[in-house]
């Protein structure tokens, strides 16, 4: 005869193993579903999926323009936000007083907490009109003369530049948090050693702190890349998706990313 206590702990064991099973089966289900459903396309198209354009009415089902758009927007966003986040986290770790650090931390946490659709709405209602009215013509009339990459064209559903700006703002908190973590874990002995031989703070950063924290910073950038390339709603609201997707040919042209291809109701 089993007493109540043993029965209870057996039940706990059972519940715990069941929940672990649920956790593992959930991701296997995701993999299975996605792989299973995409098998037909993979078998039929093979490598053409990566190089052809997407135009179902012509029987073309390639993802090339979307892939180009995704990678362009993501790398532009990282280009904008990696240097700024690095500067901010260096400032927070090595220069600022603890009061300033707390304030900026709260600001960055707030940035991280804003829903992505709200970034999208802000981009669409505030940023895109501003680009159309001021920034786009300015860049188009100056740099646009040098290269067609900067030529301005008006679009009210957004463009590559607005999408990467919004993405840069969204990725920023992730980058700052990882960089703060890794920069503040640089051993203080080494920093003090460098300071004691007469190096300025910036020289300490340049010669000791940054090289030591490089793997961590890289990890943060990769995390940010993963987040940026998978971001859906904000990007599809401000990148001006078209049907069929076209290759983004300039900073102010519309782009249709992979995630947008999945969600957007093309018109």
């Amino acid at each position: 005869m089993i007493d109540i206590a043993t029965l209870k702990s057996r039940l706990l064991d059972l519940a715990i193993y069941l929940s672990v099973l649920a956790l593992i089966s959930s991701i296997s289900l995701i993999f299975y579903e996605v792989l299973h459903q995409s098998l037909e396309a993979l078998r039929e198209l093979g490598f053409r999926l990566m190089v052809e354009e997407w135009n179902p009415s012509l029987g073309k089902y390639g993802l090339a323009p979307s892939l180009v758009a995704s990678f362009t927007i993501t790398s532009l966003a990282l280009l904008l936000s990696v240097p700024t986040s690095l500067l901010v986290s260096l400032y927070l770790v090595f220069y600022s007083s603890s009061r300033v650090r707390a304030t900026v931390r709260i600001a960055v946490e707030l940035l991280a907490g804003i829903p992505s659709v709200i970034y999208g709405a802000w981009g669409l209602f505030v940023l895109v009109p501003w680009i159309n009215d001021y920034f786009g013509p300015l860049v188009g009339s100056s740099l646009g003369k040098l290269s067609p990459l900067f030529r301005h064209c008006e679009s009210y559903t957004g463009n590559v530049f607005s999408a990467s700006t919004v993405l840069a703002i969204m990725v920023f908190p992730i980058l700052v948090f990882t960089q703060l973590e890794f920069l503040s874990s640089v051993p203080s002995d080494y920093i003090e050693a460098a300071l004691s031989v007469g190096a300025t703070k910036w020289q300490v950063i340049k010669t000791v702190a940054l090289p030591t924290a490089t793997p961590g910073i890289l990890a943060g950038i990769i995390l940010g890349f993963g987040r940026a390339i998978g971001e859906t709603m904000a990007v599809s609201m401000v990148s001006g998706p078209t049907n069929p997707p076209t290759y983004p040919y300039s900073l102010f042209s519309s782009a249709t990313t992979i995630t947008t291809l999945d969600t957007h109701e093309h018109r």
Binding site: Q37, L39, E40, L45, L63, G230, I258, T259
Partner: peptide, 21 residues
Amino acid sequence: FEWSALFAAALILLILSILSI
């Protein structure tokens, strides 16, 4: 067929994110 092609797009995203992690 679009359905399947869209899942292929999702698969590419999935692979990218798993690679990054």
